[in-house]
C-alpha cells in the first residue's frame, strides 16, 4: 500500500472567490517517490487528516506572519503578501502530525513553518543582512512570484539528511527569508556557502525541511529525487 502524503496548498482569494490552489509539481514528486498525494481542503477539522494520512508535506509560499515568532510590523508598508487562512491550517496540522509522531517534510516556507512551530525564528529579509544575493534573483515582498537562482550547499555529516545528500550539492534558490534561531530539538543539516541554514532535521523524530525546492523539476539536480524518496520511505515505515 502507498503511504498517503497530505499536502497543504495555498488557500487564498481570487476575484473575491475563496479557493484552494496547489502546484501539480508537489503531487508529481510525491507519486514518483511512491506516495499517494492528498490535498487537504478543510481548516476546521485538521485531526481528520492526521488520522487519514501517513505523512505531511508543507509546501512553499509567501512570508510567514512575523508575529508567529514574536516580531511585529512597525509600519503598514512592512506588511508582506500574507496568507492567514493557510497559515492557521499549517500551524495546527503541523503540531498534530508532530504530536502523532508522523513524518513531516517542509519545503521553503514549509521548512520555516516547521521551525517556527517549534519555537524557532526567521530573518525577515536576508537581502537586508549584507548577504551577496545568491538566494534569490529578485525579491518583491508584495508579490508571491519567485525568481530562481542556484548555489552550492554543504551538508553536515552525521545528520540523517547526509545519508541521502552528498557532502556538497547544488540546489535551486528563490527565498528572501531564512532561519535565524533553530526551533526546539532541531539541528542544522546543511548550510549555504554564505552561511544560511539550508536544511534542518529534528533530533528525535522524522521531521525535516529544506530551504530549496526539490519539487521544482530540474533534471540536473539529482538530490531532489533522493530527498522525496527518503521522505516517502520514512512515511512507509509508519504505515499500519
Amino acid at each position: 500500500m502507498k503511504p498517503k502524503i497530505l499536502i497543504i496548498g495555498e488557500d487564498d482569494f481570487s476575484k473575491n472567490i475563496p479557493h484552494f490552489v496547489i502546484s501539480c509539481e508537489y503531487g508529481k514528486a510525491v507519486s514518483k517517490a511512491g506516495g499517494l498525494p492528498i490535498v487537504a481542503l478543510d481548516a476546521m477539522n485538521p485531526e481528520d487528516y492526521v488520522k487519514m494520512c501517513d505523512g505531511l508535506l508543507l509546501t512553499g509560499g509567501p512570508d510567514i506572519h512575523c508575529g508567529r515568532y514574536g516580531e511585529f510590523y512597525s509600519e503598514d508598508s512592512e506588511f508582506p503578501y500574507l496568507c492567514t487562512n493557510r497559515e492557521n491550517l499549517e500551524f495546527q496540522i503541523c503540531k498534530l502530525f508532530l504530536k502523532a509522531k508522523k513524518p513531516v517534510f517542509g519545503i521553503g516556507r514549509g521548512m520555516q513553518i516547521l521551525n517556527v512551530v517549534l519555537g524557532g525564528t526567521l530573518y525577515r529579509d536576508i537581502t537586508d543582512e549584507g548577504n551577496n544575493l545568491i538566494h534569490t534573483a529578485k525579491v518583491d515582498i508584495k508579490s508571491p512570484k519567485a525568481h530562481i537562482t542556484y548555489h552550492k550547499i554543504n551538508v553536515n555529516t552525521d545528520t540523517e539528511l547526509s545519508k541521502v545528500l552528498k557532502n556538497e550539492e547544488v540546489v535551486n534558490s528563490c527565498h528572501h527569508q531564512a532561519i535565524k534561531e533553530l526551533g526546539e530539538n532541531f539541528v542544522v543539516s546543511a548550510v549555504s556557502e554564505d552561511g544560511y541554514i539550508e536544511a534542518i532535521e529534528h533530533k528525535q523524530q522524522n521531521a525535516f525541511g529544506v530551504q530549496w525546492h526539490p519539487e521544482h523539476a530540474d533534471e540536473t539536480l539529482d538530490a531532489d529525487g533522493r530527498i522525496f524518496d527518503y521522505f516517502v520511505s520514512v512515511c512507509r515505515e509508519g504505515l499500519v
Binding site: 484552494f20 490535498v39 481542503l41 508571491p144
Partner: peptide, 18 residues
C-alpha cells in the same frame, strides 16, 4: 490553473464546494 510562486500547472478549487 497555475501556481502563484513558479507559475507552474496547478489545481484550483472554489472553497464553496469544500
Amino acid at each position: 490553473g497555475f501556481d502563484r510562486q513558479f507559475h507552474t500547472e496547478a489545481r484550483v478549487l472554489n472553497k464553496t464546494y469544500t
